[in-house]
Design a protein around this nucleic acid. Structure first.
Lengths: 246, 246
DNA sequence: CGTTCGGTTGAGCTTTGTCAAACCGCGTGG
DNA sequence: CCACGCGGTTTGACAAAGCTCAACCGAACG
């Protein structure tokens, strides 16, 4: 109970009081171990739970009539899934594990209690929603206005930045537990073209795909090439801190 | 004070009590009249206000190094702008009027008071954020996985659905107070290709561009062609209604 | 009546997709 | 230990979608 995954994650945003910690920890039923490729939640099903990732990777996606899928966002250890649909009856996108993973499901009614009893925790939930939104905005810009290679470069830069926030140190080698086809489904291009774009980035000395990992040769140049600005990953924590503690 | 724009808009989501109405109305300083093309808020500036549209159209956008812009979302009368950035210090995208418009700005500190004092209003704010998010999700799918003509068809179908929610009756002629270049900036294609895509839709008997308006010839077929499902525009109002009134 | 702005159209080019083959590392079973 | 197959990556040839540039058109407006 002392270091439940959500308490640990939310502590990132504010110095939680004992009461707040207890409220959050009470949300947690029990973590579930899921195999890679497990459907966590399907499109159209009641959106009455949300989830935190304890370990592993997952993604939200939407299937199209044509049979291919668009991946909306990746989720990494510590992140919260499903909050985006809190105001909808049925979920608007699917949720699926990418690797073997441990997730903690929370029921919506329990969240509702928390919202009613803590202003600061409410703000953290809103912050998480705003963060998801900000990432989606970047996805829109990436999909709408960049070439395939720029999309890929931006994706790599984002991955590095997000992992740095989790691991608290920059990494120039990122192990990718998924295929280039998945990257294609994120970037809206084919896996063949992902491969070609990697070659291009390698020729430019920015980054390359080696075995099962991305190796960043020149992070600053990569970010510049992708026009990447990490501001959208940096929330204003003072907004939470300054809230009445209640 | 009796029918301030935000009270009117939020009443759409719940049967507000007198106290709630007063709280909301108190938020409102005074509406501002803005000419078409006015920058409401710039990228990088403090995101310490948000806005409701009383009349006219506006859009949020992001400028790229290359000089072209990606439009993220359109805002129509009654909608709330800027909530997406509530947890960020600086705004992540620009906000600009598309037509002459009347907007009501609210300061963030006033919102904070409301969040602290009403659970139901807090949920409405979260609902608005979730709605913005859902629209962004559709934008991502549109940009990532559809042909130009399908993108355009989806955009028209969305426009029709959103206007129907505002005017409470379906319209098969939609006056567009902006050029095809703007549509291109929304869909991530060039204005030339917007024109070509309109021709294609017309040939298919789905919709056409006439003078300054879109005319929908066959709404059902248009939605089918675009794989449009309005679920993402239909929030779960019971979530707000069932909240403790406080 | 001329100018301007947005829309339309065509020609040629660039980017990306499609399809198919070759390749490569890895695990499996003989 | 080797042959095989499998999943994922790479490459090449070709097709399709979309972009660019330029010309043209038509309506609105001075």
């Amino acid at each position: 109970m002392t270091d439940s995954c959500i308490v640990k994650h939310f502590s990132h945003y504010a110095n939680l009081t004992g009461a707040e910690r207890a409220l959050l920890a009470a949300l947690e039923d029990h973590p579930e171990e899921l195999a890679a490729g497990t459907e966590i939640r399907s499109v159209g099903h009641r959106a009455d739970h949300f989830f935190t990732m304890t370990s592993g990777w997952a993604y939200s996606y939407r299937m199209l009539r044509s049979g291919d899928q668009q991946i909306l966002d990746l989720y990494m250890p510590g992140e919260v899934m499903g909050l985006r649909e809190i105001a909808f009856e049925d979920s608007l996108c699917g949720l699926r594990t990418l690797t073997d993973a441990k997730v903690c499901p929370f029921s919506q009614s329990r969240i509702d209690e928390v919202l009613a009893s803590s202003t600061r925790l409410t703000r953290i939930f809103m912050l998480v929603m705003a963060r998801e939104s900000a990432i989606l905005v970047e996805r829109v810009i990436n999909l709408g206005r960049r070439s395939a290679a720029e999309k890929l470069a931006h994706f790599i830069a984002e991955l590095q930045a997000r992992l740095e926030l989790i691991h608290e140190r920059p990494e120039n080698e990122i192990e990718l537990p998924f295929s280039q086809a998945v990257i294609g489904d994120i970037l809206g291009i084919t896996s063949v073209h992902v491969s070609r774009s990697f070659r291009l980035l390698k020729e430019k000395g920015l980054a390359g795909f080696e075995r099962d990992r991305v190796v960043i040769y020149n992070a600053a140049a990569l970010r510049d090439y992708a026009d990447f600005d990490r501001a959208y990953l940096v929330e204003d924590q003072s907004w939470v801190e300054d809230a009445p503690v209640l």
